[in-house]
Design a protein around this nucleic acid. Structure first.
Length: 1095
RNA sequence: GGGCCUGUAGCUCAGGUGGUUAGAGCGCACGCCUGAUAAGCGUGAGGUCAGAGGUUCAACUCCUCUCAGGCCCA
């Protein structure tokens, strides 16, 4: 080996972290990402949309997960030759940002006042914000958004998530906001942006509605009233009937009874009418299933059932409301029973009281049935002036008084308390009210069919999300309430005449705004609150002023607008959007189902042909979605700050490297299954695999190829290479196609596993192991074939693996070819054809090798000891397998391998039933026939091997058995050591002749000399002088195999026995030798000594 | 309360259209190899397929229910 000409640099002997950081530095210096983009700039685009993260929180390991998936598909498609634009984006508006800043304000205020921050929190957020001013608050929000930007970018960089961070879209930017305004204006033109009511969880103390995730933070177990009232049913004419009939109604919020307008029953439930056995002055009606629950287990002692009816029979009946404190408005029906599917007989009475102003179900039912809307509660949660008995009382506080009145009026059936989980304000602990509020809506219900049909065109991975979670939600879709009573968000661009609320102007661009106010917008124009609210103008009608509504919009509307807003469409870049809409691929977590996945679809569907390639019956804004699930800790628990089990991605990266982490995350289970993040598992799976991969390159290929091989015309053509080479190349072609197909199908897990399995099982365990000797003998044709083959295998494997483990594959690919793997094509244009027969034969050989090893184990003979013969039985094509006999012979160290067929005396036949075909023919008789078949002997079975039918008697009847109906098993039946499994069998002859004993000893000597060379730290190419002494038998063996031993251990001179001379004295004086060894082989003594030749 | 997912060896996971020794890797035990060596390889022991019913000649696989875990929504 000439040290000055290293053909294949070895990977540095550092840990993965250091290796990867070195590669990153190289990529940065070369601008490899930019290069890879530029190289494909004119190719067909594969469009990827990046779902924007909020940068005001630290990125965690779950972000590494999602980003790995995004990155690997983008890399794959780029390697396939597509242009894959990857514009970064930041989600910058919304409640999480506000909450962060609010908490800061609370801490500052608490410090100023010298109190605990929780005291300040009780005040309610809005007060504090308005104290510092909206301008200052929003300024701080804008700043807060970027708090962790640097860390996001650094982590993306470290994990090799290739994304264009130089030109990101930012949802608060002027351009982005203007595009969002355009979208809202467009929706308004289509009458799809409207004003209405929505029931929202509302904190009366803070004066604000809460978002769902705020609500989720505040669930608490509390004791609430459980109240049954018995209301009088009325006749069709509205009068009370002669015999009172009372319907039982359950509620946990007695204060809402003031606003009752209807009762709901389930149309399919059975309701029972009962009369008391004594003093029957009235009857009561409730769900049959709840009779025992409400009246007690012994109800039958006191009540008679006098009739039953369906809920649908009750629907339409009138009743008298429990309290008549508020006037019903002129519009809307009231005091009527309506059928509703949401009513259940799980608890209560199966009859639900409806107050449309105070519950989502109630409101929806109100809409469906045209019910009256009664709202006697103000924004502070108090009953309004003029309400009898309870005016000015906070609603929850009014419960007690209301119960008293109900009792006085004889409508209270029974009242108790019960524990349940109820949401409270996370800031101040006040119980939330479900409260009807004015709100702006996108009328997505008008688009339901279109949403569903577009969704049906999406390739969801996994498909259940599309049909199940997301599809279900779409079919129960309600209008999207997009307005928020908050501060930091895209302002709703709706101006309303302060004198005439029906006079509405929705502004769709800054130019329009300038036009309305009659002057250009100032240089420091800011579309955010409070700046934007100074713009007003006189109404066209001449009366009133146009003023913007106070709300901002749901931040999901921002992110859902990114397909066009990231390009400031339609004000700029129409051509880009035309080319890059819709997306071919997006990927996010399951939690985005109702988030980004929905907002993208809803906005694109609503905008319709206002976007390019988006006419009415187009596909969704994304064609393929990969949904990933959570990353749990090693125990399967959700990671959370409070549990302290959050994994810091930087620590993990440092210990294992990004390649191992990426590979683990993708390969450990399907990405849409929650995965446990276990560092031991990373080490044992991905880490071990990468080590093997590295060893095959460093330890086998590079080490020996550096003796002088490189690709050349002297390498034998594939057809001329040994079967082993042709086999691994055939495997390679198959794997290449399969992996590519899996990635095309968005199955990253199967793809990763396939490459890993190939590398481990086929390349390392079999190809390299069987080929090792071929790499030593540099420059022979066989050697060239082996190197050329392994070079090809490694190069292609690097490419297949590059999307998953972009670092080590790049290092190895560069070492092999001089170019980056990330600029290489994913698959070869002309792969070696697959050789099916050869692959099957090799499978057979590997199975036989396993059996033969087992046989050696049983015979208790080491592999080093040659044995005379091995007989093999295979179920299939004997000719093909026997070509690989030499391989088996060397693997098992036997002199002769024979393949025997069913005609041999050594083989007996047995039959096993093929239930698949027998079942069809014989049905219930199948087990009988199977038994009869199994009892057949060799002779009876022979015709089947020749393709002829036979008959058997089963259950007293003759049955015709075709060759397909049974599997014939050949069994080796010699006197030798036999192992068999599933039609494969071996018979190993364990006889050790004196000659074989000699050869075994010789191999033993070789083995010990090699070990000694290693101990002496000789280079693999160093020549030695070797001395052997010891037992007679040992010396005889060495003498018999003298030249072979000298050859294998590179001994220039071999001194045997007496030739050794004095230095080998018993006093252990080996000073003249570099290394010596004294031991015994099966009781025969042996002494070895060696020194480097020519020293 | 509703929807969806998951439950197979100690651990992590495979197991088209139901077919009779239920597979792999890791770990473990035993062994091999000793020119990939803080590597490589083989063999083996581990499972009433969460539980209970049902359909079927035949159920890990299909149906129903129950239990446990997870996510989303109320």
């Amino acid at each position: 080996m000439t040290q000055d000409a290293v053909l294949y640099p070895l990977l540095p002997d550092t840990n993965a972290d250091a290796l990867e950081r070195g590669i990153l530095a190289q990529w940065d210096a070369e601008k490899l990402f930019e290069q890879s983009q530029a190289a494909r700039a004119n190719a067909k685009p594969f469009v990827f949309f990046e779902g924007p993260p909020t940068a005001n929180g630290r990125p965690g390991i779950h972000h590494v997960f999602a980003r790995t998936i995004k990155d690997l598909f983008c890399r794959h498609r780029a390697m396939q030759g597509f242009y894959v634009p990857r514009k970064a984006g930041w989600d910058t508006h919304g409640l999480p940002v506000e909450i962060e800043v609010e908490k800061e304000l609370q801490r500052e205020e608490a410090a100023r006042q010298g109190v605990d921050p929780s005291e300040i929190a009780k005040l309610g957020g809005k007060q504090l914000i308005e104290q510092v001013g909206v301008a200052e608050f929003n300024r701080r929000c804008r700043e807060s958004v970027w708090k962790y930007r640097g860390e996001w970018e650094k982590l993306s960089h470290r994990t090799a998530y290739w994304l264009d961070y130089d030109n990101p879209y930012v949802t608060y930017s002027h351009d982005f906001v203007e595009s969002v305004w355009w979208a809202l204006r467009t929706m308004h033109e289509k009458s799809l942006l409207v004003r209405g009511h929505k029931i929202l969880p509302y904190c009366a103390r803070c004066g604000t509605a809460l978002s769902s995730h705020e609500v989720a933070q505040g669930y608490d177990d509390v004791e609430d009233p459980s109240v049954y009232v018995a209301l009088d049913l009325l006749d069709a004419d509205g009068n009370a009937p002669a015999m009172r009939r009372r319907i039982l109604v359950w509620t946990t919020t007695p204060w809402t009874l003031v606003s009752n307008t209807a009762l709901a029953v389930h149309p399919d439930l059975t309701y029972a009418e009962l009369r008391k056995k004594s003093g029957a002055e009235f009857t009561i009606i409730l769900a049959e299933a709840r009779v025992a629950g409400v009246l007690g287990g012994d109800w039958a002692d006191r009540w008679d059932v006098i009739g039953t009816m369906k809920g649908s029979d009750l629907a339409g009946r009138r009743y008298r409301r429990p309290l008549d404190w508020v006037e019903y408005p002129a519009e809307g029906r009231h005091e009527i029973i309506v059928p509703e599917e949401f009513v259940s007989a799980e608890d209560g009475s199966g009859v639900v009281h409806m107050a449309p102003a105070f519950g989502a179900d109630d409101y929806a039912a109100g809409q469906r049935h045209g019910l009256a809307f009664v709202q006697p509660v103000n924004a502070r949660g108090e009953f309004v002036e003029g309400t009898p008995e309870v005016a000015g009382l906070f609603v929850k506080k009014a419960d007690a008084r209301i119960l008293e009145v109900l009792k006085e009026r004889d409508v209270l059936w029974k009242a108790s308390q019960f524990m349940h989980s109820y949401p409270h304000c996370w800031r101040c602990g006040t119980p939330l009210l479900y409260y009807a509020r004015g709100s702006w809506f996108v009328r997505t219900t008008a688009m339901r069919e279109a949403l569903l049909s577009r969704n049906a065109q999406v390739n969801w991975n996994p498909s259940e999300v599309g049909t199940g979670r997301f599809g279900e939600w779409l079919s129960n879709n309600v209008d999207w309430a997009i307005s928020r009573d908050r501060y930091w968000g895209t302002p709703l661009p709706v101006w309303v005449n302060d004198e005439d609320p029906t006079d509405i102007d929705v502004i769709g661009s800054y130019a329009d705004l300038a036009e309305r106010i009659g002057r250009p917008l100032p240089d420091d124009f800011d579309p955010h609150k409070p700046h934007i609210d100074q713009y007003t103008w006189p109404a066209k009608s001449g009366t009133g002023t146009m003023r913007r509504v106070p709300e901002v919009i749901d931040t999901w509307f921002d992110s859902g607008s990114m397909p066009f807003a990231q390009w400031h469409y339609p004000f700029e870049n129409k051509d880009i959007v035309a080319a890059q809409f819709p997306a071919d691929f997006i990927c996010e977590g399951v939690d985005q189902t109702r988030g980004w996945f929905y907002s993208l679809l809803a906005i694109a569907t609503t905008l319709g042909d206002a976007l390019p390639n988006n006419a009415h019956d187009s596909a969704a804004p994304y064609r393929n979605v990969v949904v990933n699930d959570l990353v749990l800790d090693a125990q399967g628990q959700k990671m959370s700050k409070s549990k302290g089990n959050v994994v810091n991605p930087w620590d993990v990266m440092e210990r294992h490297g990004a390649d191992a982490v990426r590979l683990f995350l993708v390969a450990s289970s399907q990405v849409w299954v929650p995965r446990r993040f276990d560092e031991n598992a990373i080490r044992e799976t991905a880490g071990r695999f990468l080590l093997t991969f590295r060893n095959v390159y460093n330890g086998i290929f590079a080490q020996y190829a550096n003796f002088g091989w490189q690709p050349s015309a002297n390498d034998p053509a594939v057809a001329d290479r040994p079967a082993l080479d042709r086999w691994i190349l055939s495997r390679l072609t198959r794997v290449e196609a399969e992996v590519n197909r899996h990635l095309d199908n968005y199955d990253a897990t199967l793809a990763a596993r396939r490459v890993m399995q190939f590398m481990d099982d086929d390349v390392s365990k079999w190809y390299v192991r069987q080929s090792r000797a071929r790499f030593y003998d540099i420059d022979s044709a066989d050697n060239r074939a082996a190197f050329a083959t392994l070079h090809e295998v490694l190069t292609v494997t690097c490419r297949l693996l590059a999307p998953f483990a972009p670092f080590i594959t790049d290092a190895v690919h560069r070492a092999l070819t001089g170019t980056s793997v990330h600029l290489a094509p994913y698959t070869r244009e002309q792969p070696t054809p697959v050789d099916e027969t050869l692959e099957t034969a090799m499978d057979d050989v590997r199975t036989l090798a396993g059996l033969a090893h087992a046989a050696r184990d049983v015979a208790d003979v080491k592999v080093r000891q040659p044995l005379p013969s091995l007989q093999c039985v295979v179920p299939g094509n004997v000719t093909a397998v026997s070509e690989l006999g030499a391989l088996l012979a060397s693997e098992l160290n036997v002199k002769q391998v024979e393949f025997v067929t069913s005609t041999d005396a050594l083989v007996s036949l047995e039959a096993k039933a093929n239930f698949r075909t027998l079942g069809k023919k014989f049905g219930k008789e199948t087990p009988l026939v199977a038994e009869a078949v199994a009892a057949l002997g060799s002779e009876q079975l022979r015709p089947l091997t020749a393709g002829e039918n036979i008959t058997v008697v089963a259950g007293g009847v003759e049955r015709l058995i075709a060759p397909d109906d049974v599997a014939i098993i050949r069994r080796a039946s010699g006197a030798a050591v036999v192992q068999e499994n599933g039609g494969y069998g071996v018979a190993l002859d364990p006889t050790i002749t004196p000659e074989l004993r000699e050869e075994g000893l010789a191999r033993e000597v070789i083995s010990r000399v090699q070990r000694l060379r290693k101990e002496a730290q000789l280079a693999v190419s160093d020549r030695i002088v070797l001395a052997v002494s010891g037992d007679e038998e040992v010396l005889g063996a060495v003498a018999a195999h003298r030249s072979r031993i000298a050859d294998e251990v590179l001994a220039a001179r071999l001194l045997l026995g007496d030739e050794v001379g004095s230095p080998f004295s018993d006093n252990g004086d080996g000073a003249a030798w570099t290394a010596t060894h004294t031991g015994d082989v099966d009781g025969r003594s042996i002494r070895l000594a060696l020194t480097k030749d020519g020293v």
